[in-house]
């Protein structure tokens, strides 16, 4: 093993991935490295919109994995990535500390509730606003629901990790995050939200056009889409990409 890693030249793939992938992707990377000797995969996790902006300014990456179609379309239009593929789906949930007064989605519009969510610029923030506005049409919540909820927002975080930390530290009563973020959090309660109206939450992955290791990068993308890759993603709570 030691000998082979000395003999085979090391190739490092740099993957720019949405913050919500920060647990699943390292697991994918480890598996990929195990089956591809001489290749190591490193990750830069951030809000998809931040990664997209970094790519536009010429950041060196081999792969871009976005949490929404909007950022991937932007990258595609700017000719930064080639042929992106949907690879996973996710849902929004509510997280609250076990001791929080928030137990259902109805509590979010109660005056005095401290809610944190992502900023509009981040995919998680755009999804959350669309979902809340969709809930206005549901008589169970009422037409003024989203207005009441948005008035309770005490902070617009840069990414889903920011929301999780404010809720985990007990500063906010509840936060809107992805289902996958709320998994394996013993001190937090995960509360289901209605399905997102319109286009679902679909993650997309593509090889960066300027990559000097495009064929290896394409191998990694193929691995993410393969049965083995999808199994790892499912383990971290992602579902198959809906179209």
């Amino acid at each position: 093993m030691v000998v082979s890693s000395i003999l085979i030249a090391q190739t490092t793939l740099t993957v720019f991935a949405a913050a919500s992938l920060h647990q699943a992707f390292p697991a994918l990377g480890t598996q990929f490295e195990a089956s591809h000797p001489g290749i190591s995969v490193r990750f830069s996790f951030n809000g998809s919109q931040i990664l997209e902006a970094q790519l536009e300014q010429g950041a060196a990456a081999d792969i871009f994995a976005s949490a929404d179609k909007r950022q991937m379309d932007k990258a595609l239009q700017a000719q930064l990535v080639a042929d992106p593929k949907p690879f996973a789906s996710n849902e929004l949930v509510l997280v609250a500390a076990s001791s929080s007064k928030v137990t259902t989605a109805h509590d979010l519009s109660a005056p005095g509730t401290k809610l944190v969510m992502c900023a509009q610029a981040a995919p998680c923030g755009a999804y959350a606003r669309r979902l809340l506005q969709g809930m206005d049409a549901d008589p169970a919540y009422g037409q003024t629901y989203s207005g009441g909820v948005l008035r309770n927002v005490v902070s617009e975080e840069l990414d889903v990790e920011g929301v999780m930390s404010k809720v985990t530290l007990g500063e906010a009563d509840a936060g809107i995050v992805y289902r996958t973020d709320a998994l394996n959090q013993p001190n937090l309660r995960s509360i289901a939200l209605p399905a997102l109206p319109g286009t679902p939450i679909v993650y997309a992955i593509g090889v960066v056009r300027t990559s000097a290791r495009a064929s290896t990068a394409a191998d990694f993308v193929a691995f993410v889409l393969s049965a083995g890759g999808q199994k790892i993603l499912a383990k971290y709570g992602f579902s198959a990409a809906r179209t």
Binding site: A53, E56, A119, A121, V154, E156, L158, K166
Partner: peptide, 22 residues
């Protein structure tokens, strides 16, 4: 945190704007 008018100072506004309108 980050909320316009309450806690969103200039440096945070710059960072937020850089993500949508460079």
């Amino acid at each position: 945190g980050n909320l316009p008018g309450v806690t969103q100072t200039m440096p945070i506004a710059v960072y937020m704007a850089a993500q949508t309108d460079l």
